[in-house]
Design a protein around this nucleic acid. Sequence first.
DNA 1: TTGTCAATTTAAAACGTTTAAGTTGTCGGT
DNA 2: ACCGACAACTTAAACGTTTTAAATTGACAA
Lengths: 337, 337
Amino acid sequence: MRPTLSDVAKLAGVSVATASRALSNPDLVADGTRRAVRDAAASCGYKINLVARSLRIQRTDTLLVLAPCIDNSFYPGVVRSIEETAQAMGYAIIVGFTMKTEKHREAYGELLSAGRVDGMLVMDGGSGVERFTGPQPDLPVVQVFDRIYGSAVPVVRVDEQQVAELAVHQLASMGHRRIAHISGSVDHPSARQRREGYTSAMAKLGLPVDDHLVRSGHGHRDGAAEAMKQLLELPQAPTAVFCGNDSMACAAMDVCRDRGIHVPGDISFIGADGTWDGQLVFPTLTTVDVPRAEAGVRAVEQLVGLIRGQAVAPDTVLPVELKLRGSCAPTRTAVAA
Amino acid sequence: MRPTLSDVAKLAGVSVATASRALSNPDLVADGTRRAVRDAAASCGYKINLVARSLRIQRTDTLLVLAPCIDNSFYPGVVRSIEETAQAMGYAIIVGFTMKTEKHREAYGELLSAGRVDGMLVMDGGSGVERFTGPQPDLPVVQVFDRIYGSAVPVVRVDEQQVAELAVHQLASMGHRRIAHISGSVDHPSARQRREGYTSAMAKLGLPVDDHLVRSGHGHRDGAAEAMKQLLELPQAPTAVFCGNDSMACAAMDVCRDRGIHVPGDISFIGADGTWDGQLVFPTLTTVDVPRAEAGVRAVEQLVGLIRGQAVAPDTVLPVELKLRGSCAPTRTAVAA
DNA sequence: TTGTCAATTTAAAACGTTTAAGTTGTCGGT
DNA sequence: ACCGACAACTTAAACGTTTTAAATTGACAA
């Protein structure tokens, strides 16, 4: 049997109450006693039982992180940042990947409502966060990146419309007028917002918002490749493409290379998210960088605040930044002018 | 206050023991009682307290996963596979990234010895796994990919030497004789083994093992780029390079492109690991694929076996597979012949 | 001697489950 | 009518901490 606190107490010749204090609240016991207890603990290899402790203090010091799926190349960075921040603040993290069945989501939600974790970070936009704000006494939850409209759950995010605007403005400033958009999955909130941002930015600049120039790439490479092929078959092909994320941009660029179309000479590309993908391809991808690491930090800070009963910002919006790299260039006419 | 089991019992007019049974062991109570308890629980919004349950049954149904760091593009895939398998077997996973200070490792190790998790999966080769097999009653631990020699801790891995052999043989079969190796970090066990595998494969084939042809890329892009530059400055530059992992291979290929050296026309590349990186670059990277998903599955199976007290295989070796893609080609002389 | 006070220590009650052991009550067999 | 055997339920003891409130101790002043 593993030694318990009462074993230590017996060994040190004190009560378990004193033993407990000596180990976790040293100021409350006399010097000699403290040493005696410490020695006893060490000599029998005592390890505290954190489960018992949690039960007593009604705290697990654990957070739940729900991500859509981690091999996406976007999420690993934010999960890592979350983990680091959490660890620094004394929390461990349980990570769960949803986007499987609804059942899996339930299973993870259970961990929160059943008190196995102190709070929850949802990056999975569809998670039905509202479930946790309903009849239940409000449980500590913070959304990251994908906001559910109308929910009162605090969120840490970027301005998705601005992501699109930055991209469109950059391309327009390089002389592009026929700018296409390959969007993410329509049921992904942030993808929809980027698409809206694209449309409004085009309109504001007085550029043609041709329906044919907007294609869904469904958020993945195959979809984007298909979308790109369709764009190239247009009577008037675009001279630039803003893609909803980097991996779609890379796939679209691949299609161009296969057809001997030169990037950025013949056509320019801008992606979004700022993942590593864009730095691997040639030419390297211009992208609108989303500050994932900072988002992770802020999200944990908010969540821990919520757990500790402090007031938290209901909506934290982080700035995005355009990273100009090799995949876009001025149009020929702009160069000639 | 959140309703507890005794609230439910009171509401249903039974003892807490019966309430407990009705909910978690339904066969042991009469039909009517079961229904009464269920209704009571539903009506007051009762949620079980998993911490209390864990304390009682001495089980947390949680596993700890220690990874070196997740933005490496290799680990996300295996973590995901681990999560899926664990979830399917009824376990949640806590993930921790080590390779920070030793203190952080301690902190996570604590979770295991303090009973907050039932077992632990270490992918972090340096984790001093032996700590857990020493004086402590052996705690359930399984190593993944990075074995510590001499430790009795079961491991799930691939034959790293074979990884190198497959690569070298492929290149040799294409007529290459001056085959270089850019290796990973020397204090990374698997990197060392790949390097040894390279050396012995070259020797077996009667090819020159020139010390100048072996350079450490330290496992990352910058190191690999530097190593590649040195290789190119050799009086007799190699005609092929086997890189310790895909991201180093990509970086090395970038160096070649910058210098106008054609891949695979002038020089061939083979990477290792089979990450997504290799499919993004042009030409796509030939690589020795490491079955990460399967490794995750097997690792969890072993660990759960260990937890349940079953006998487990001390050493599970998974097969690797060469994925032939665009980055390597026969030498000119081989083509001429 | 007695009382007061501070400094330590302790007994015991939580925290919310599960489960071994014990109590009923019913029924069938002799 | 008595004796198991069985089903359904209850009592009470765990699981291993923390912490409140109470008890003990010793010192020191009156």
